[in-house]
C-alpha cells in the first residue's frame, strides 16, 4: 500500500502525462465489486422490495448493480423470497449456471431459516444454506431497501478484500 499512497507524487513529476501504478489484484477486485450484476430471481414479497431498490427512488445502478435475466451473465444471486422444497433444485441449477466468481445474498427471513414458515410447514426449505453457499445474510421480513443496500455494500467490501489465490483454491 505504500506505493499506492505515493502514486500522486510520482504522477506530478511526470510532465505532460499521468501514470497509475497498482496491483492486478486491486484492479480485478475493484471491477468485480463495482459491477455486481444480479440475477432477476424473485419468488415472493422480498422481490417487491428488490424492485423498489432497483427503481429510481433508491437506484441500485449507482452501486453498479444492474439486473440480468439470465444466470450466465450474473455475478450475484439475490434470493428474494421464500424457497420451497420444489424450488430448491431449480435454485441450485441456476447457481450452477453462473460463472465464477459468483456470490449469494440471502435476503429475508425465509431464505435464512424458513422465517414465518419455520413452524407447521411441509413445503418451505428451512434456509437456503442447505442448497447453496451464502455470502451475506440480510434479515427482515422483508428487509427495507436501505438494509438491502447495506448488505450489498458489505458484499462489495468483502470482494475488495479478496485475494487472487482465494478463487484458485476453490
Amino acid at each position: 500500500m505504500g506505493l499506492i499512497k505515493k502514486v500522486p507524487v510520482y504522477t506530478e513529476n511526470i510532465p505532460g502525462g499521468a501514470l497509475v501504478a497498482t496491483s492486478l489484484e486491486q484492479v480485478l477486485n475493484f471491477g468485480r465489486a463495482k459491477s455486481l450484476w444480479y440475477l432477476l430471481f424473485g419468488t415472493a414479497c422480498c422481490a417487491i422490495e428488490l424492485m423498489c431498490t432497483g427503481a429510481s427512488r433508491y437506484d441500485f445502478d449507482r452501486l453498479g448493480m444492474i439486473y440480468r435475466a439470465t444466470p450466465r451473465q450474473a455475478d450475484l444471486i439475490l434470493t428474494a423470497g421464500t424457497i420451497t422444497k420444489k424450488m430448491a433444485p431449480r435454485l441450485r441449477k441456476l447457481y450452477d449456471q453462473m460463472a465464477e466468481p459468483r456470490y449469494v445474498i440471502a435476503m429475508g427471513g425465509c431464505t435464512i431459516n424458513g422465517g414465518p414458515f419455520y413452524y407447521d410447514s411441509y413445503s418451505v426449505e428451512k434456509g437456503i444454506d442447505h442448497i447453496i453457499p451464502v455470502d451475506i445474510y440480510i434479515p427482515g421480513c422483508p428487509p427495507r431497501p436501505e438494509s438491502l443496500m447495506e448488505g450489498c455494500i458489505h458484499l462489495q467490501e468483502v470482494i475488495r478484500k479478496q485475494k487472487l489465490s482465494d478463487w484458485q483454491e476453490k
Partner: peptide, 14 residues
C-alpha cells in the same frame, strides 16, 4: 402432508 398425523424429519410443530 395435510393429514393431521403427518410427520417428517425436518417438520417442526408450533
Amino acid at each position: 402432508p395435510m393429514r393431521k398425523d403427518w410427520d417428517a424429519p425436518d417438520f417442526v410443530r408450533m
